[in-house]
Amino acid sequence: MRTRFIDTPIGGLRLHVSAGLLTAIDFDATPRGVPVADPVLDDAERQLTEYFAGERTGFDLPLAQDGTEFQRKVWSELQTIGYGQTATYGEIARRLGYTAGISRAVGAANGANPLPVVVPCHRVIGADGTLTGYAGGVERKRILLSLEQPGLF
């Protein structure tokens, strides 16, 4: 596994790559060691830098999404929420063919997303339109949504 630290407007992120796939992005990372050369890490750093500069609205990276079948379905659906758009947990459930009653399960899968920002779990909001839990903290979620749609939150 190879890793790389990048500094972003939402704090330090650590990118993880294994077998040519981006496997995880960690919040609250700190710099350590010398950056290693890796084409996937290079692409991920470039694309995230472009995203935070407002120059990119989507990502084109090879992703490993190790999780349950349900988690992978939710993570795949998250990738259909467009830049600057939001969806509720209930809407995600309905899009997947379930009732809105499993919105908590959708929330749990959302929270288990190993690739935040790239797989845009920050675009999922509460049924009442409020910012609800986010693995990186609600303030990071607000920053990401405001980056995509200034004045939204």
Rank of each mutant, 00 (worst) to 15 (best):
D43T: 11
L63H: 09
A112H: 11
F27M: 10
G107T: 04
I81W: 03
E50G: 07
A64Q: 08
T30N: 11
G126R: 11
N110P: 03
L22M: 07
T99Q: 09
Q47H: 06
R4A: 05
S18E: 15
F70R: 03
N113T: 06
T30E: 15
A105M: 10
P120D: 03
V74K: 00
I25V: 13
V106Q: 01
I10F: 06
A19D: 14
E77Y: 00
A100N: 03
R56N: 07
G82L: 08
E91A: 13
V40F: 05
I92P: 00
F27S: 07
P39S: 14
F5T: 08
L63M: 13
R4M: 05
A112D: 15
A19R: 11
R2A: 12
G84Y: 09
A19M: 13
V40R: 01
L21G: 05
A24S: 14
A87Y: 00
A53F: 11
T86D: 03
G101L: 03
F27G: 04
I25Q: 12
L61P: 14
F5H: 14
T23M: 07
G90F: 02
A87V: 01
F5K: 10
L22Y: 10
A109T: 01
T8S: 15
Q71H: 03
Q65N: 10
V119P: 00
I10L: 09
T57M: 14
V74N: 01
G111C: 05
T23Y: 08
G11F: 13
D38H: 10
R56A: 13
R94N: 08
F52M: 12
V117H: 02
V34R: 11
V74P: 00
F5W: 11
P114N: 10
E91G: 04
E55I: 08
P116Q: 09
R72I: 13
A29R: 09
G33D: 15
D28W: 12
K73C: 05
A105D: 12
S76A: 09
A53C: 04
R95P: 01
L41I: 08
A127T: 14
D60L: 10
T30M: 15
L78A: 01
V124L: 04
T8N: 11
G20D: 12
R56G: 10
T86P: 02
T3H: 12
D38N: 14
T68D: 07
V117Y: 02
L13S: 10
R56I: 07
E45Q: 15
Q71M: 08
V40P: 01
K73P: 00
Q47G: 10
A127R: 13
P114Y: 08
V36C: 08
V117I: 11
R4Q: 12
Q79S: 13
L61D: 14
D42H: 06
V124R: 00
I81N: 02
T68W: 02
Q65M: 15
I125Q: 02
G20K: 09
T49F: 04
D42V: 03
Y98A: 10
L13C: 12
V119Y: 01
T49G: 11
Q65A: 10
G97I: 05
P120T: 04
R123F: 04
G20F: 05
G33R: 05
V17Q: 07
V124D: 00
G97P: 06
P39Q: 13
E50A: 14
L78M: 07
P9V: 05
G11S: 06
F70L: 07
L13I: 09
W75T: 01
P120Y: 01
P39A: 13
E55R: 15
T57P: 03
F70E: 02
F5A: 08
E91I: 02
P31I: 12
R72S: 06
A127N: 12
